[in-house]
Write a protein that binds this DNA or RNA. Structure first.
Lengths: 214, 214
DNA sequence: TAACAGTGGAACGGACCGTTCCGCTCTGCT
DNA sequence: AGCAGAGCGGAACGGTCCGTTCCACTGTTA
């Protein structure tokens, strides 16, 4: 294990460092599958004891917050990546595909309300909104996005994809891609299409989850 | 039973008969909002005591089963109504609109697994599948449904609509209609469309919920 | 070898929830 | 008129589940 001098830590320290990662990964997997899973399930999945968890996080809420914030950052990162794509429509669809694949929506929206958010999360959320708007604007500019689609239709779309869930994760990904394809086809501009009904989704309408409950 | 002359019964009996309905309505509202709400929440919402519930149902499972079965019957009824509609495409979209509006999906799929189903439910579920297939076949025949859409894409579609949920029920209905409109547009046949990706959803893939858990 | 970071997991205390039970009210029948 | 009991409200009970704490133990580091 420990190769003597210098850099690579061996033994206990190395194990601990590795556990950092293992635990986060387990937490992601477990809470993605069930947002109100017990903390013991995370420990079990990670193959560690409960103490290993509480050594790193002040409590369940702390862990959830971190997880959610990670998801938010991922969202922002994917959006920034997408904005580098020269093709407007490809940027839009590529972004959505990656966000859906990574199940970012479950990490963020579905975990909200289980903890009190930090200010930084508020800032990141705002930034996420701006980037999404930019992507939608570009999609509109490309002429491929139907003109009556608005930014907050993305909320509906992501919710729809996240709702698809079967026991096998890989199959879930496939079905979500299919769902996404249908939705993107539905959001594509076609001649003589009926306009989308109802007042379009608005700014604060999906934030209600962020208000604590249960 | 009915003792006095043919008039509307008053007093206790009438109250009891009214409670039958009030309780069912409350149960529907509560469990639609949260499939694992406590039974006391139903009683509270109905404005009755817990005893009034247990007088009518053997237990929570019994109530849930009944509720789910009602939803299933509603699904079948709407499908049969739809099949009377002469226009193939209108039958298809009308059916989906009514099923989405009534939130039948939450009553059936989302309540599954919380009780052991009866044989009759199994038969009704099978009939529901046949009727849905008939509707999809007719939609295909109309030429308006893209040819690579299959019956079980309805499962994805209904899941997507049921996933839309905001505090205000009326607003929820509006947003679901919008979601449905996007999905129907996406399922409409257009020239030169990319085919839908992945193996299409298959028969048993959404039934996993029906296997008990939690 | 002494001290201790890191850990596993039992144990604790509280929340929640389905179900039961008891006492009350008011009805419908005799 | 009077009584048996249907119908009911809600407290109480027993059980489950879960977050957190606590302690004994182990390998490492100094």
């Amino acid at each position: 294990m420990s190769t003597t001098s210098g850099k690579t830590l061996g033994g206990r320290r190395a194990q601990a460092a590795r556990n950092d990662e293992v635990i986060l990964e387990a937490a992601r997997a477990v809470f993605l599958d069930d947002p109100k899973a017990p903390i013991a399930a995370v420990a079990e999945r990670a193959g560690v004891g409960i103490s290993a968890l509480y050594r790193r996080y002040a409590g369940k809420e702390d862990l959830l917050r971190q997880l959610c914030h990670d998801g938010l950052r991922r969202y922002v990162a994917e959006a920034e990546t997408a904005l580098d794509e020269p093709d407007d429509w490809a940027a839009f669809t590529g972004f959505l595909t990656r966000v859906v694949d990574a199940d970012v929506h479950s990490l963020t929206v579905h975990l909200a309300g289980t903890f009190t958010p930090t200010e930084e999360m508020g800032r990141d959320a705002m930034r996420a909104g701006e980037l999404a708007t930019a992507l939608v604007d570009r999609a509109h500019a490309s002429g491929r996005l139907r003109s009556d689609a608005v930014v907050h239709d993305l909320g509906l779309l992501l919710e729809a994809c996240a709702a698809v869930r079967v026991p096998d994760p890989e199959r879930t990904r496939q079905l979500r891609r299919r769902q996404l394809a249908v939705l993107l086809a539905g959001l594509s501009s076609v001649p003589d299409a009926d306009p989308l009904p109802g007042p379009p989704p608005a700014a604060g309408e999906f934030d209600w989850r962020w208000r604590r409950r249960e």
